[in-house]
Amino acid sequence: MNSETDVIIVLGTRPEIIKLSPVIQACERREIDYSIIHTGQHYSDSLDSVFFEQLELPTPEHHLGVGSGTHGEQTADMLVGVEQIICEEEPEVVLVQGDTNSVLAGALATSKLDIKLGHVEAGLRSFDREMPEETNRVVTDHVADYLFAPTEKSKESLLEEGISEAQITVTGNTVVDALYRNRELAEQKSTVLDDLGLVEGEFFLMTAHRAENVDDEERFDNLLAGVSNAAKQYGSEVVYPIHPRAESSLGEFDITVPDNIRLVEPQDYLDFLRLESAAKLILTDSGGVQEEACVVGVPCVTMRDSTERPETVTVGANRLSGVDPENIMTSVISMLEANETWENPFGDGSAGQRILDEVVQTGQKVNL
């Protein structure tokens, strides 16, 4: 494959936009012919467009506008659209990132054609098959030609499943590339702390959107109670940029949000990055936020029973609490009282370049 070869990049959610931005920017620098398929898996076109603008990315050539639906409906609609575009453009490689339905659709469509598939962030495992994301990432890994593992741990998981070492490249995680590039920009440009009346280091930041948490009334209620109690222990307000799914559940279940949890609108990338960097503690059920907290050096509590980012726990940046209020309290105290620093396990910020080195084979492949 040479530098003239077409690359198609499939994405559909805001975390994918962020994590694939270093790959897109590397394509631009190296003048590689590429195009972007946006499935539209996230519902807010306006917020998506802000992400592209802030990250200085070109407008996607293709937008499927799939939106919400059941897993089957979403994946089927995306599969049809992605396959049609791939057949028209005939690239030599398609790149997908992560574990969403957009990733699964891109992987399945590509794997049935004579086109190479690259999986960015390969080898992540929660070992919880009740998570639809686990199915998506496992299937994608096993049909991919190039597996870009962010860490040695994820490489080990792939090898244990019988995937050839020749297909695996440890690249680091592109989230580090994005954070290194944009953290300073967020400090300079974002006014979110002033807008929300927040003082750096004196508030908790929370995200909760996973179906197993917010679609279950008892779990969601317990989660909110646990976070509220832990924040009271430290006299801190909780800022919660609320996901549409979670907001809908609050209304459906008629849940009263505790007074010290402030609901705010979903934030654009630079504002959310500023909130992450300025928080005293982050509570989340998001995989990507676990990584980002680890990289920016803010203690994290993950309100889940498992994580596909075990490196964050190993280095001391993160602790699993589930949604039991007492466990949330214990985990928050543990993270804040430890007062530790840790080494970022996700690479040096050159993952996007390493990925292109492998698929385009121009220049020497760089090792971590």
Score class of each variant (00 low, 15 high):
137 R>N: 02
104 L>Y: 02
150 P>W: 00
119 H>A: 07
133 E>S: 09
123 G>V: 07
153 K>Y: 15
124 L>G: 06
120 V>T: 06
150 P>R: 00
121 E>S: 03
92 E>S: 15
85 I>L: 14
128 D>P: 06
89 E>G: 09
122 A>R: 04
132 P>A: 05
144 A>W: 10
91 P>Y: 06
130 E>G: 12
115 I>L: 01
106 G>Q: 04
99 D>W: 09
135 T>Y: 13
112 K>Y: 13
124 L>F: 10
108 L>T: 03
140 T>Y: 09
149 A>M: 11
146 Y>K: 01
110 T>H: 02
102 S>E: 05
113 L>T: 12
89 E>F: 03
157 S>V: 13
120 V>E: 03
98 G>A: 01
110 T>S: 06
126 S>R: 13
128 D>E: 09
99 D>V: 08
100 T>W: 00
142 H>V: 09
115 I>S: 01
111 S>E: 02
103 V>M: 10
148 F>V: 08
111 S>T: 11
155 K>L: 14
150 P>C: 02
122 A>C: 07
119 H>R: 05
121 E>G: 07
153 K>I: 14
93 V>T: 12
92 E>W: 10
101 N>S: 09
125 R>Y: 04
114 D>A: 11
117 L>T: 03
98 G>L: 01
86 I>R: 08
127 F>D: 07
123 G>N: 05
87 C>I: 15
131 M>N: 10
126 S>P: 14
114 D>W: 08
150 P>E: 01
116 K>V: 10
120 V>D: 03
138 V>H: 08
152 E>K: 11
118 G>E: 01
133 E>Q: 10
151 T>Q: 03
151 T>A: 07
156 E>L: 14
98 G>S: 08
142 H>M: 09
88 E>I: 06
134 E>D: 11
141 D>T: 12
94 V>R: 01
110 T>Q: 04
143 V>F: 04
124 L>I: 11
145 D>W: 03
98 G>Q: 03
